[in-house]
Design a protein around this nucleic acid. Sequence first.
DNA 1: TGTACATCAGTGAACGCGCGTTCACTGATGTAC
DNA 2: TGTACATCAGTGAACGCGCGTTCACTGATGTAC
Lengths: 211, 211
Amino acid sequence: MMSIIQNVKREDYRGDTFMGHSQADKAQTRERILSAAARQIRAQGLESLSIGGLMRSVELTHGGFYNHFDSRAELQQSALERALQDSEARSAQALEDAGSAAGLARFVRGYLSRTHRDQPDTGCAIVALLSDGGRSDDALREVMSEHIERFFDRVAEAFGEGAGEQATVAVCAMVGALGLSRLVTDDKHSDEILRTVRDFVLASAREARAG
Amino acid sequence: MMSIIQNVKREDYRGDTFMGHSQADKAQTRERILSAAARQIRAQGLESLSIGGLMRSVELTHGGFYNHFDSRAELQQSALERALQDSEARSAQALEDAGSAAGLARFVRGYLSRTHRDQPDTGCAIVALLSDGGRSDDALREVMSEHIERFFDRVAEAFGEGAGEQATVAVCAMVGALGLSRLVTDDKHSDEILRTVRDFVLASAREARAG
DNA sequence: TGTACATCAGTGAACGCGCGTTCACTGATGTAC
DNA sequence: TGTACATCAGTGAACGCGCGTTCACTGATGTAC
């Protein structure tokens, strides 16, 4: 009986969630935990990470956590880095052809889209963790700061030479708009904030690249 | 012996922290707790509120908390409202003569000052709790949303008729700039963000009021 | 190819700890006479 | 004015609970022969 049940479970798990015991399997499990954590902190904040809840969300039990991370603190740091990388990769992709005006416009439209507003867990970690950053220890703060600097640099590059100040304003306006649009409960006003700032940034970028 | 010590303590407390037992005394104690909580959540977030820590910070013991609030949840709501009112009162004061360009300029300079950046606990609650808001229950979210709407309205009014979009951009840029300036660890860059956005908003306001 | 053994990812009970909350108690204040 | 009593803000021990962390154990996998 027991072995039948076990076998059935094994079948179900194969290729699904259960990963076997090879080193590659272990790395894959770690990846699933980390990926879930990176989403969790963007949705609910750095302090919302609980080992029990996180492991449950990837259908494992809490004890196994320590096969992959030394402590909750290490997880927080890794999850923050992952969350920032995730969102950086996304914007990097959009800005890939940053030399072209189209790339920049595509990035701005995506950043200030309703989709981005409504899916914080897969979106920009800087906005998702804007208030959390200042409350963390120096190591976490430094990680955030570096990614923010890169964000500014990337946008400045896309805006082009001599438009550094316009790029700075654009980044601040985009970050503020996304954050505020997520809190405003009136959908129409929330949409309007996104639209208004999007149009402003697009116009500013056109002007910068033309001038 | 005991009574002497007691008397000494009473003397020390008189007019200092101990408040007696009248209704006014009770209200004053509640006020001290609430005021500390409103600063605490701006410095460390809504979830950082602990009854023990809070009561210790106003030099009382945890048990007495329930003479003033029903639960931690009620405290969070009250503290959030207080924090938002605190910061709204500040900006209202600066914008008091919003009809004059000087009032608006004073507000913008104060909002994007290093002082404001370096003292989140007494500053704008919207920025301090920008990421926390979305994680709270509907009641707290609604409170934040209403204050955000008022913030937009106030600034729009100061910008004047027909400059609603410029006002929207200004609010987003100010919120983003303050939040980002708090995370950037390089002081020079942090200052530069504040300065750049301040100059942009001041110019935008001048233009709006002139046009 | 088949068998015996070692490895180690994952399990789940157990731990100490800090939290929110309750409650019996204290003692200074305000009130009634 | 002085005295006896009621009130109630504040105290601190105690509670149940969920958390991070540990650890003895399981059993599927990979390896040695």
